[in-house]
Design a binder for these strands. Structure first.
Length: 193
DNA sequence: CGTACGATCTGCT
DNA sequence: GCAGATCGTACGA
């Protein structure tokens, strides 16, 4: 399975990328341990006009700086003081787009994943939210800004074939503060997972 | 410098 | 169903 190349991350339309990432494989090699999973749920955060995004209004701080880098890097930040959320930065021309990976189906390194997750829910198909995705693959803020074409964390082509009929779009989770933008159908879920 | 809070998860009731 | 965990960051004084 070939790695996604840099140009993949430099497409204009984040929402399209978020949809397209379904079925691709997210991989990490942390301390020599390889763990991978098929992406089953994503959310798009679109540029500076999206009230739900950290970059709304052109906000640019030490935390979200990497959103303004060229596409193809990871944006990892701490949420609620204990969850590391992983985003793929996808943009061209300094537009701060990102895709949050909300859920995975574990593929390789199941033993390691179970250990990291203290034998919790991952035994099933998906992990239960963006925090557990990071926990399962060993992602933490140390990987913030990491190049996604490198060998610590990367994405690969389809783990499975996706047909349109199996994709559900809906509003994003936990962004009520974003007013009308909270309604946007920027969340994509693979049915049957 | 102080304070409030978040793109959440878990375990207990 | 609900509260507690837990702390870096943002923002105002």
């Amino acid at each position: 399975m070939p790695k996604l190349k840099r140009y993949y991350y430099q497409q204009e339309n984040v929402v399209a990328v978020a949809r397209d990432l379904l079925g691709k494989t997210l991989c990490t090699r942390i301390n020599g341990k390889l763990t991978t999973g098929i992406i089953t749920e994503t959310e798009a955060y679109a540029g500076t006009n999206d009230k739900a995004s950290h970059s709304f209004g052109g906000k640019r701080t030490a935390r979200n700086e990497v959103m303004y880098a060229k596409g193809g890097r990871g944006y990892v930040y701490l949420c609620y003081g204990l969850h590391h959320l992983f985003n793929v930065v996808t943009n061209k021309e300094n537009i701060p787009h990102a895709v949050l990976i909300r859920s995975l189906k574990p593929l390789e390194g199941i033993e390691t994943i179970l250990k990291r997750r203290r034998h919790k829910a991952v035994a099933k198909n998906t992990s239960g939210g963006p925090g557990t995705v990071s926990q399962a693959l060993g992602i933490s803020t140390e990987l913030n800004g990491e190049d996604l074409t490198g060998n610590k964390i990367w994405l690969q082509e389809e783990g499975i074939k996706i047909i349109k009929q199996n994709i559900i779009a809906g509003p994003r989770v936990g962004v009520d503060y974003a007013g009308e933008d909270a309604e946007l159908p920027y969340r994509f879920i693979l049915k049957t997972f």
